[in-house]
Every structure is written in structure tokens, then in C-alpha cells.
């Protein structure tokens, strides 16, 4: 499946180990989707440290805020999501208030298996009714697994009632072929290990219908020739003063980065049955908005969205 087809999904769940650039990537995909004329919403999930406000330079709330024609952002916060969920499942407003204000119920919901997950997924389901494309910046990989896995647990625990009904609907949604799980990794051994481990578990548990998509972020594209590598190797064996030594070390460092990318690429390709899409470091630092702009531009080239179509750069 091509990257352009990926944008034709209805739901993109972006996951990966912390620090792999999930939020940046999710935002860039949202921008590209909107550039292709879709109504898109990018969501964070009840995070303690929201990153979307800095990227889109706006306050982000539970209710989506449109930041550009066709592109909205939101934060699926637990309390509001619970509110929305109860409003859907309870017949009277007074009852909703009662549940929300009752300490005992709050405590019980805390410990009821899966209550958090089903409420959050349920909100994602609601957003799909209003948008063409929903991009979810998922929690880090381990938690993403439990977020998706919880539905089968719920179905064994609840043999009747509205929770079961909703869980069934959500399971259908997640197994829909237009729902895609997108993994982000960076070329570091621990990150690659965890990414592969998470996907293997998900694949084994048949948690999701469509095949996943994998991106290797901060990839150092191979450029050193064999001869150059050999020369660096020879230089590193010479005894040098600290200043000169630094140059040789810099060469060794870069060689290692290239090799790490190559190694990660091969391992991911085997586990995901597709070549990972390489994304070079956005570089140049700068504010989060600028970084997202550069990533969108790079991915845009792959999906045929030109710079002038991106309001962002």
C-alpha cells in the first residue's frame, strides 16, 4: 500500500515508543489530509503534557477547534469523554450529573476494568461520524496495546447491557479495513526491539483488521562509501592529539548512525512485511510548528502534495 493510500483511511492510530515523534507525525498527516480536501481532526489522548497547542499555536480542548479550513485538533480528556459517553448511554441529564458528582461511582469507574479505554475509544468513534479522517496520537506503544486489547476483555466481562453493545461497535470499527495502525520508530536498538515486540503481540492477538504501516524517523541515509569507511577505520587506529581525535570520532559516529539506520530498516522490514518509510531528521531545530511544517513537506513530496498546497510552510 502506498503512502497516498494511507491518507485515504478513515482512522489512523499513530503509535510508537516515547520520543519517536508521534505527535509531530500525526500533525503532519493531518495537514496533508486537509490539503487533499478532507475534513480531518487530529487528537491527543488525555495526555498530561499536551503537545498540540505548541504546534498549532492555539488552545486545544475536548471539542475540536478548527485551526485551518478542513483541519481541526482536539484533546480527548477523560472527564469530558466520560461525560459524552454517559450522555449517550443514559436517558436523563439528571442521571448524568448524578453519576459524575458521585465519589463512589468515580472510584468504582477507576477500578472497573476497561472503563477508561472504552470511554476514550468511544469518543474516537463519535469523531468518525463527523470527520472524513481521524488521526489519533496514541499513547506510547505498550499502552496502545491495552487500549485496543481491552475490548475483548470487556466482551468476556460484560455479557449484557450498554457497555457490551458499545464494545461490539468499537470492535467493528477497529477491525474495519480503513482503520490503520501507524508505527513510528527511530534507529535505536531499544526502540526497534520494543516496536517489533508490540506489533508481534498485536499481530498475534489479531487486534486490528488492516495491516500496519511503519515509519523510521530520524533516519541517517547511507552515504559513506566502503572506501571512506575503511579510511575512517584506519585513522581511528592512529594515536592523535584530542583535537584531531575529535574529527575521527565524528566520522566513526556518523558511520555508526548510517549502520544503525540500515540495521533498523532490515529488522523492521522483516517484522512488518513492508519496507519502512524513511524520514530524515527534521533538522534545524526551531519551534514545533516549523518542525511539523518540514515533516509535512517531506511526506507531501511522497504523496503528491506540493509546497504551495501546504498552508503550513
Amino acid at each position: 500500500m502506498s503512502l497516498a493510500q494511507l491518507l485515504d483511511s478513515r482512522l489512523l492510530m499513530v503509535t510508537g515508543k516515547g520520543g519517536t515523534g508521534k505527535t509531530t507525525f500525526a500533525s503532519a498527516m493531518g495537514i496533508l489530509g486537509a490539503a487533499k480536501g478532507k475534513r480531518v481532526v487530529v487528537c491527543e489522548v488525555d495526555t498530561q503534557r499536551p503537545a498540540l497547542p505548541a504546534i498549532f499555536e492555539t488552545e486545544v480542548h475536548f471539542d475540536p477547534v478548527e485551526v485551518h479550513p478542513g483541519l481541526s485538533v482536539c484533546n480527548i480528556t477523560w472527564n469530558e469523554a466520560l461525560h459524552a459517553y454517559l450522555r449517550r448511554s443514559l436517558p436523563m441529564k439528571r442521571l448524568v450529573r448524578m453519576v459524575l458528582e458521585n465519589q463512589l461511582i468515580a472510584r468504582l469507574l477507576d477500578i472497573t476494568p476497561g472503563s477508561r479505554e472504552v470511554v476514550i475509544l468511544s469518543r474516537v468513534g463519535n469523531l468518525l461520524e463527523e470527520y472524513d479522517l481521524v488521526v489519533v496520537d496514541m499513547p506510547a506503544s505498550g499502552h496502545a496495546f491495552s487500549l485496543l486489547d481491552i475490548l475483548s476483555t470487556l466482551l468476556t466481562l460484560f455479557r449484557s447491557g450498554p457497555v457490551r453493545q458499545r464494545a461490539l461497535e468499537l470492535q467493528e470499527l477497529i477491525h474495519d479495513l480503513r482503520t490503520r495502525l501507524v508505527f513510528l520508530a527511530i534507529p535505536e536498538e531499544m526502540v526497534i526491539n520494543e516496536t517489533i515486540e508490540t506489533w508481534t503481540r498485536m499481530e498475534g492477538a489479531e487486534l486490528i483488521g488492516g495491516s500496519p504501516y511503519i515509519f523510521l524517523n530520524r533516519a541517517t541515509l547511507p552515504s559513506l562509501t566502503e572506501e571512506e569507511r575503511a579510511l575512517i577505520g584506519r585513522l581511528s587506529k592512529v594515536k592523535l592529539d584530542p583535537l584531531r581525535r575529535e574529527f575521527v570520532q565524528a566520522g566513526v559516529w556518523e558511520d555508526r548512525l548510517e549502520q544503525a539506520t540500515e540495521g533498523a530498516q532490515a529488522r523492521l522490514a522483516e517484522a512488518f512485511h513492508m519496507d519502512p518509510v524513511l524520514v530524515p531528521p527534521a533538522g534545524g531545530g526551531g519551534n514545533p510548528r516549523a518542525v511539523v511544517g518540514r515533516v509535512a513537506l517531506h511526506l507531501g513530496r511522497m504523496v503528491g502534495v506540493a509546497r504551495r498546497e501546504l498552508p503550513w510552510t
Binding site: 448511554s89 466481562l157 455479557r159 449484557s160 457497555v163 457490551r164
Partner: peptide, 15 residues
């Protein structure tokens, strides 16, 4: 009683 009724509505009697 009210809270209980709600709970059993949302979570189901069996659970």
C-alpha cells in the same frame, strides 16, 4: 438505590 440502579444499567447486573 438510585446509584445502584444506574450502575446496574450501565455495567449490567451480572458484572
Amino acid at each position: 438505590a438510585m446509584v445502584w440502579k444506574l450502575l446496574s444499567y450501565v455495567l449490567g447486573e451480572e458484572f
